[in-house]
Design a protein around this nucleic acid. Structure first.
Length: 220
DNA sequence: CACCAGGCAAGTA
DNA sequence: TACTTGCATGGT
């Protein structure tokens, strides 16, 4: 049983169980970019508060975020945590978005995937997961987004080593599955959803979340 | 009360 | 290069 079959099986099981999750939860590609920064090591619930606050202040647009004072911005996104750092990171990302692509998501999306990924990674505050989330959910590029939940679930299935990093995990998915936007979109959504539901903490739970699902489904 | 959440960068050796 | 630490709110 190779990992290609395992990945496909996991996908089929989760997809059948949860159905289409409609990710990323945002009203626009720009909101995806902002959310990707705000959700860094932070519960999504808190990010929602920050995004709502940005909307209430009519700040959820490149020109507005470019103009607003960083300290004021920090106060507005405060519920998302790490607010001073994130205000700075949002500023960096927006400056990049505006100077390179005039704040136009289509212009950014026209760039080829490898080059765009490299450029995003040069932005202060944009690491692999943030870059890949933007590439997949804002630019519709076929990239798999690897996060802590992804690693946890693969570890539970003993499909990776404890020391496997983000690049290894991303390569595992991208080299074993068709590089399809819809597939990667839904797969990542399913893994995060599953992680939230079933494996908040690895050490205290040795039960594989998918095995719980299998039991619930009566399959396998 | 302790612990954790859809990371990342800067500092240290 | 490989570890360690700071960043911070809000929910369980």
């Amino acid at each position: 049983m190779g990992c290609r079959e395992d990945l496909l099986e996991i996908y089929a099981l989760l997809n059948g169980y949860f159905g289409d999750l409609h990710w990323w939860p945002a009203e626009s590609p720009f909101e995806v970019m902002v959310g990707a920064v705000l959700t860094q090591n932070t519960a999504w619930r808190n990010v929602e508060k920050a995004i709502s606050a940005l909307k209430e202040n009519n700040l959820l647009a490149p020109a507005e975020l470019l103009r607003i004072d960083e300290t004021i911005l920090a106060g507005i996104i405060r519920p998302a945590g790490y607010y001073r750092i994130k205000a700075n990171r949002l500023k960096s990302l927006v400056r990049f978005f505006v100077s390179e692509y005039s704040g136009n998501i289509d212009r950014m999306s026209n760039e080829d995937l490898p080059g765009l990924r490299e450029k995003l990674l040069t932005v202060r505050g944009v690491g692999p997961e943030t870059a890949d989330s933007i590439l997949l959910y804002a630019c519709r590029k076929p990239v798999f987004v690897s996060d802590t939940y992804t690693k946890r679930i693969l570890l539970r299935h003993r499909m990776i080593r404890e020391d496997a990093d983000e690049a290894i995990i991303r390569a595992l998915f991208m080299s074993n599955l068709p590089n399809d936007v819809s597939l990667f979109n839904q797969f990542h959504a399913l893994l995060v959803h599953t992680g939230k539901e079933f494996c908040r903490k690895i050490p205290k739970c040795d039960v594989c979340p998918l095995r719980l699902l299998m039991r619930a489904e009566g399959s396998k």
